[in-house]
Simulated scan of single mutants.
Amino acid sequence: MAPNTASLSNDRAAMRVTIGDMAAALGLTKSTVSRALNGYPDISDNTKLRVKRMAEDLNYMPLSHAQAIKTGRTRSLGLVLQLSDHDAQRPFLAEFLAGVSAGASTEGYTLTVASADNDIHLIDTFRNLLRDGKADGFILPRAMVDDLRVSMFRDADVPFVLYGRQDNDTGCAWFDVRGEDAMHDAVRHLANLGHSRIGFINGGTIYNYAGLRRDGFVRGMAASGLNFAPELVIEDAMTPEDGARIGARLLDLPNRLTAIVCAVDRVALGVYKAAEERGMKVGTDLSVVAYDGIHEGAHAQPPLTTYSVDNRQAGARLATLLIRRIGGEPPEALRETVAATFLERGSTGPAPQSAHT
Rank of each mutant, 00 (worst) to 15 (best):
L111F: 08
G243C: 08
M15P: 02
N38Q: 09
L97N: 04
A355F: 10
V150K: 00
D215V: 02
T306C: 09
K134A: 15
T357W: 03
S308C: 07
P141R: 05
N255Q: 14
T47F: 01
A2P: 15
T74F: 07
D57I: 09
A135D: 08
V51L: 07
A355Y: 07
F153P: 08
D21A: 05
L251Q: 13
A88H: 08
V271P: 08
R149V: 00
D21N: 12
V282S: 01
I260D: 00
G72T: 14
F153D: 01
V80A: 03
L148N: 10
V187F: 11
M61P: 01
A23L: 04
P62A: 03
A36G: 03
G27N: 04
H295W: 14
A173V: 00
A351K: 05
C172P: 11
W174G: 00
G293V: 00
Y272P: 07
L190N: 09
A186P: 08
A114G: 15
A290L: 03
N168P: 07
L318D: 07
L257E: 00
A182F: 03
L83P: 07
N10C: 13
S31I: 13
T5N: 10
V158P: 04
E329T: 12
Q301R: 14
A263F: 02
V218D: 12
A55V: 00
T106H: 12
E241F: 10
A268T: 11
L81M: 12
R219G: 06
A156P: 12
G171Y: 02
Y272M: 00
A248I: 02
A182K: 04
G315A: 09
T5C: 07
V288K: 01
A237M: 09
A23E: 02
G270F: 01
D132G: 13
I326C: 04
L129V: 08
E56K: 10
R178E: 08
V177Q: 05
E95P: 00
E344V: 14
D42L: 04
E344D: 13
L212S: 07
H65C: 05
R178C: 13
I201M: 11
